[in-house]
Amino acid sequence: MKILVPVKRVLDYNVKARVKADGSGIDLTNVKMSMNPFDEIALEEAIRIKEKGNAEEIIAVSIGVQQNQETLRTALAMGADRAILVVATDDVHNDIEPLTVANILAAIALKENPSLILCGKQAIDNDFNATAQMLSAKLKWSQATFASEIDIQKDIVRVTREVDGGLQTIDAKIPAVVSVDLRLNEPRYASLPNIMKAKRKPLEEISPADLGVEITQRLKVIKTEEPGSREAGLILENIDQLVEKIQENVGG
């Protein structure tokens, strides 16, 4: 089977986000950008499924600016077989909403016919946690979110989900859209030879119009602000002082 993995290029998780002075969003000029950590986990899982002989091809897709090429090269170096770049904007500050992303991915899925789409559960920039669910609805496929274990069986994929109360296991009919959580696996680093090889792997570039999808924005950003900040407090001298502070604030 074929596996499709969407990968988003986001502000690196180690970099502190800075709000732009005009309140329009986060400053993304000259900052380190990387693959969304959850998408890395999704891709790693796809590669493991292929290594076990349960998949033949992995296609990585990225939607955004031209520079997303880098993210796709990383995906190819990790082990994706080919990549599709959908150039949807020329401004990195223009975040494409999950609904549009889902429309684009659905159009690609109809062309490519994957059996499985593995998504990160959320992008660490907009934190929407929505693309996989919306995509699954658009395709009318089965949906399994927040996966911490994935087991491909004949016509189904058995997924253990991290839910608020603990763990839930469900069987989702293939084709399925699965969104992955942190504890599914630990992504590999691309080796130097694989980085070299990745340069020769196919990377196709298309536009949303090629797929018949219009870029819409349903949520207009009115303003972006720094959150209310906390001040560093008191460093206490000893345990007794701490006990006192705890007692003051329990049931307070």
Binding site: I26, K220, T224, E225, P227
Partner: peptide, 16 residues
């Protein structure tokens, strides 16, 4: 709503 792990708060208006 918070974005970027709560490092910014964003106010959005929906046209849906």
């Amino acid at each position: 709503r918070p974005v970027y792990a709560g490092n910014a708060m964003q106010t959005v208006q929906s046209i849906d």
